[in-house]
């Protein structure tokens, strides 16, 4: 029981980390990024390569992979998203355009990964030593994944809530059309939010690669779960993403442990459906 709780928290912490990235991209930059999960998987493969080829520990590879994720997303925003932001007359048009463009991007990233790594399940063994916490046995890699997720997520929440820079971000999230009135450069802020979202996706990918097997095609599921977490938590809300991510991770772990591992995605969907019917604005979102 306690063991499942810890494992659920590990999974939930990872989901929360990844979903925070997506909520930045969707809530602030207003880009619905369907290729998000594939960025996560690309980072997981990068960590795998750095570990197996160079013997670099995933904690160190974060120093390479996270800036790379930032740079990649920065480039994607400048190249693909910015023209779409300019072209779109309203936020709905931007939503449709960004969904379509990132759907194309999903296939590009997946195709590149497929050429490089093939379609097999991939994993590596790092810190796979059992640790005893209050009687429950947990692998050290899972535990470090949880700590990593907590540190990265906590740092981000502090940045957004306590700095002037974070205030700008939140202003754009609340109203992108009024933010320029108080001297905020919306495009610049959006680009920064999108790039940080990409950096979080990359860190999530490294964390996932430490304790899970992954394939080139598992990106879709991560995008899906991150989207569900974002909607559960309320668009653009970091505490919401945190809470919803943990809930999702716990539910999945308990379903896998007590009901059937094959039904985890179905349980995720069930939560999503219940939420859509009961509280469409999210747990922390304001009713519109």
């Amino acid at each position: 029981m306690f063991e499942h709780l810890i494992n659920g928290l590990v999974l939930g912490g990872t989901y929360a980390l990844v979903a925070m990235g997506l909520t930045l991209q969707y809530g602030i930059a207003r880009i619905m990024n369907l290729s998000f999960g594939d960025t996560v998987i690309a980072a997981a493969f990068a960590a795998y390569v750095l570990f197996t080829a160079l013997g670099l520990s995933p904690l160190l590879s974060l120093l390479i992979v996270v800036p790379a994720g930032f740079a990649f997303s920065y480039g994607i925003f400048s190249l693909i998203m910015r023209p779409l932001v300019r072209r779109s007359a309203n936020s709905e048009a931007l939503e449709v355009d960004s969904i379509l463009a990132t759907f194309g991007l999903l296939f590009v990233i997946q195709g590149v990964l497929l050429v490089l790594f093939g379609g097999n399940f991939t994993s590596y063994s790092y810190l796979n030593v059992p640790v005893d916490i209050l009687g429950a046995v947990v692998a050290l890699n899972r535990l470090s994944a949880l700590i990593l997720a907590a540190v990265l997520g906590g740092a981000l929440v502090l940045l957004l809530m306590r700095t002037r820079w974070g205030l700008r971000m939140r202003a754009v999230a609340i109203s992108a059309s009024s933010a320029p009135l108080v001297g905020i450069n919306v495009i610049q802020t959006s680009r920064m939010a999108f790039a940080i979202g990409g950096a979080l996706a990359a860190s999530g990918g490294v964390v996932i690669s430490m304790y899970q097997t992954f394939t080139v095609t598992s990106g879709v599921v991560f995008t899906m779960k991150a989207l569900i977490v974002v909607i559960m938590g309320g668009k653009g809300s970091l505490p919401g993403a945190l809470a919803a991510g943990l809930i999702l991770g716990l539910v999945e772990t308990f379903v896998a442990a007590y009901i059937d591992p094959g039904l985890t995605l179905a349980s995720t969907y069930l939560i999503f459906l219940a939420l859509l019917l009961l509280r469409p604005s999210g747990l922390f979102g304001k009713a519109s």
Binding site: I80, L100, A101, F103, G104, L105, L106, F107, V108, I109, Q110, G111, V112, L114, V115
Partner: peptide, 12 residues
């Protein structure tokens, strides 16, 4: 092996 890259690019 490359068609999904090419198709994705065409789509964008």
């Amino acid at each position: 092996n490359h068609y999904s890259i090419i198709l994705g690019g065409i789509f964008i």
